[in-house]
Amino acid sequence: MLDNSTVRALGLVSGIGFSIALFIGGGVVLGLYLDERLGTTPLFLIVGLLLGLGLAGYTMYRLTLFRSTQR
């Protein structure tokens, strides 16, 4: 029932969705937490946010463009 293309589609679509939420959300939360602990507001927030955005963008690139040109 589970053919190859459907499983790939599932993985791809699911991965794109999570990469955005996980990296950006994670970066913000981690940044806020570190700033609160170390009293460095808003240094780590910005670092976390930029890092999250970069990672999310890179993951999306890897997932879509890279995979489609691989074959």
């Binding site: 029932m1 053919d3 190859n4 293309s5 459907t6 790939r8 589609a9 599932l10 993985g11 791809l12 679509v13 794109i16 879509t64 995979r67 489609s68 074959r71």
Partner: peptide, 22 residues
């Protein structure tokens, strides 16, 4: 539903997932 009943020859194409999303 268990499958792609009719008119669906390209289902084993590995690029399909990426193409669908794009």
């Amino acid at each position: 539903v268990g499958g792609h009943s009719e008119g669906h020859d390209a289902e084993h194409d590995d690029d399909r997932a990426a193409a669908l999303t794009q």
